[in-house]
Design a protein around this nucleic acid. Structure first.
Length: 634
RNA sequence: GGACCCGUGGUGUAGCGGCCCAACAUGCCAGCCUGUCACGCUGGAGAUCGCCGGUUCGAAUCCGGUCGGGUCCGCCA
């Protein structure tokens, strides 16, 4: 690896424990103190510098790079081999470690004080010219090419060091959990479909034709059953599968740290998880400061009101400001003069703003782009107000606001000279969401966030249910087994009294869940809950979500049955390992911390998966293709 | 399901209606070179511009479709 990433090999020893006939040392190991000794090295040819009678080879393995010198006068055979060698050939070198001549040391390599004077060079394997530069870590390469030749991409320093970081992360996670009495248990990947949440991946059964397994979206039900089983503290580094459209932070298969604890309340889970996260962070990325310990705990309401997001990036301020008070007259009625604002307020909406520092000088084109962005985020419009150096305010709605009205409004938003105030008037949900997204976008564009900081926080007190307009019923905002805050238990009813006849005005809409998300730098790292562990409450909750009793038996039979045999109070959480590793390595895309990720259309460009099944495979499963894609039908 | 961006020697880019059977860098091949470390010098090979169709006297360049990759909305916790 390159000298720029000394941390890459820190978790393993600097060399292999077991020398072999191929090598006595790794390519990152030899130092000035080894001068005079014999060494056997093996690795890939990183670069060759041919000076005629003298040839230099940079030999690379995961641990580093060591310079090998071949002098034709010392060993004609080695020189002949070195002449034939090309980049990425695999070679074994036997030679003498020697201090470099004064003035020829390379301070950029940890091994730069020495070189190996080759007595013999063996070509273990040749290599075609690689499709991209393996030896230049900064060279830009089309990602599709990197994915097709992933094994060459992993040879390169950047991806290799990220995978090592991820390995250290997972190692730290295991250590902390074992230290706190957690039991690591594997759960099956061939399970039963779950009705809620994402689309399942389906695996047809050969032994039971016509029936299918589903791949787990998470080990949710299984870990709850482990609590009923008395495991008390469980964790797993679990692979999960969801058949939904991909994003930079979403792959069809991904890895979760899944954990569950018995006899806990919400604070107990949050306290352990917070301790665990701090320990893991300090071990894995010791150079990165954690912004606040203990983590700030924001209620959902507070997060939405102040940041317009349930996953706020707390590395910078730019909080949402309520302009309502400034827009009302002395008698409390909306009287700004701008009809959109006044009517929004009169009909129960809000007028809120964020202040973008330094953007007052934005051109028409730039402000238009912000308006367009707001509309794409769901706003009907966006008002901008630029505070100029002399304190005057430039805004398209100046004429409606009256003399000094724009200035008073900008002041109410807390803007100073040079700032651009962005105002959205809408239903609270929409206004918060739009401003929250604008805040995140502008925070990135303006570089407001400290790249090095780790700003963890908790968001809790989510609503239990959201009204589903399309289906005309309630559905769980997280998972259907989340518990309800004890004081909100009476709210788990419909106004009609019949759970089969829900309406958006039901008391259930006000019930808050014992649910909590961990947020890191504006990314949802994970979420969990204290579960409904009493059967009566579980049935009430599921009924509110439109599950009939018969349907419940069908879908959740094992859990319902288990809950008749003494389920302890329990709760847990799941954290996205891919996202965590990506954030730790300052990547915005989880593909950059996965060895073999898939493209946005779900393809593995290296293996060329998915692919057509053999007709015999289909026949064995009793399947055939139908519809427009059926060419192998029959 | 939808919007937008990208696709030119091995790689990364330039060219965006005739000056282009395509330029630059790097890589590759050959030769020379005993202290380099992105070694250097000399010479050479290598792309019909993702694919299909259209517009035009003329297309890498314009239009339509399609395939592949990416970002985003929906979806997803």
């Amino acid at each position: 690896m390159q000298s720029t990433a000394p941390s890459a090999a820190t978790s393993a020893a600097s060399g292999p424990d077991f020398a072999s006939s191929y090598r006595s040392h790794t390519c990152g190991e030899l130092r000035a103190g080894d001068a005079g000794s014999q060494a056997r090295l093996a690795g890939w040819v990183h670069r060759r510098r041919d000076h005629g009678q003298l040839i230099f080879l940079d030999l690379r393995d995961r641990y580093g790079i060591t310079q090998v010198v071949i002098d034709e006068g010392d060993s004609p055979e080695a020189h002949a081999a070195a002449t034939r060698v090309r980049n990425e050939f695999v070679v074994a070198v036997v030679g003498t470690v020697a201090r470099r001549l004064p003035g020829t040391e390379n301070p950029r390599l940890p091994t730069g004080e020495i070189e190996v004077q080759a007595g013999s060079i063996t070509i273990l394997n040749e290599s075609k010219t690689p499709p991209f530069y393996v030896n230049e870590p900064d060279a830009p390469i089309d990602e599709a090419l990197r994915l097709k030749y992933r094994y060459l991409d992993i040879r390169r320093e950047p991806l290799a060091s990220r995978l090592l970081l991820r390995s250290r992360l997972v190692h730290a996670i295991r250590e902390v959990h074992h230290a706190h009495g957690f039991v690591e248990i594997e759960t099956p990947n061939l399970i039963k479909a779950t009705p809620e949440g994402a689309r399942d991946f389906i695996v047809p059964s050969r032994l039971q034709p016509g029936e299918v397994y589903a791949l787990p979206q998470s080990p949710q039900q299984l870990k709850q059953l482990l609590m009923v089983a008395g495991v008390d503290r469980y964790f797993q580094i679990a692979r999960c599968f969801r058949d939904e459209d991909l994003r930079g932070d979403r792959q069809p298969e991904f890895t979760q740290l899944d954990l569950e604890m018995s006899f806990v309340d919400q604070d107990a889970v949050m306290d352990f998880v917070e301790t665990m996260i701090v320990e893991v962070s300090r071990t894995t990325v010791p150079d990165r400061p954690i912004q606040d310990v203990p983590f700030p705990r924001l209620s959902y309401e507070e997060a939405m009101t102040r940041y317009g997001s349930d996953k706020p990036d707390l590395r910078f301020g730019m909080e949402l400001v309520d302009l309502g008070p400034a827009l009302r007259g002395d008698d409390g009625t909306p009287a700004s003069g701008f009809r959109v604002f006044d009517e929004t307020l009169a009909f129960g909406g809000v007028v809120k703003a964020i202040v973008a520092p330094g953007l007052a000088g934005s051109s028409r084109r730039e402000t238009d782009e912000l308006v367009e962005l707001a509309v794409r985020f769901g706003a009907r419009g966006l008002v901008h107000m630029a505070v100029e150096a002399d304190g005057g305010v430039r805004t398209p709605i100046a004429k409606f606001l009256g003399e000094g009205g724009a200035e008073r409004l900008a002041a109410a938003a807390g803007a100073v000279a040079g700032d651009l105030v962005l105002v959205v008037a809408d239903r609270p949900k929409v206004a918060h969401d739009v401003l929250g997204r604008l805040r995140a976008e502008l925070g990135t564009r303006l570089g407001l966030a400290d790249e090095n900081a780790l700003a963890y926080c908790w968001v809790y007190g989510f609503p239990m249910y959201e009204w589903d307009e399309d289906l005309g019923r309630w559905h769980a905002t997280h998972n259907p087994f989340s518990g309800v805050l004890p004081e909100d238990e009476p709210l788990l009813v419909t106004a009609s009294g019949d759970p089969a006849r829900p309406s958006p005005d039901d008391p259930a809409g006000r019930a808050r869940a014992m649910q909590y998300d961990v947020v890191l730098n504006g990314w949802e790292l994970g979420g969990g809950s204290v579960r409904i562990w009493r059967r009566d409450l579980l049935e009430r909750s599921l009924a509110l979500q439109g599950h009939s009793f018969e349907g419940m038996r069908e879908k959740f039979g094992a859990m319902l049955e288990a809950f008749d045999y003494g389920a302890p109070p329990h709760g847990g959480i799941a954290l996205g390992i891919d996202r965590w590793a990506a954030l730790f390595s300052n990547q915005t895309n989880i593909r950059e911390v996965m060895a073999f990720p898939k493209t946005q259309s779900g393809s593995d460009l290296m293996l060329e998966a998915p692919s057509r099944p053999e007709p015999e495979q289909l026949a064995e499963l009793g399947l055939r293709f139908v519809g427009p894609k059926s060419e192998t039908a029959g």
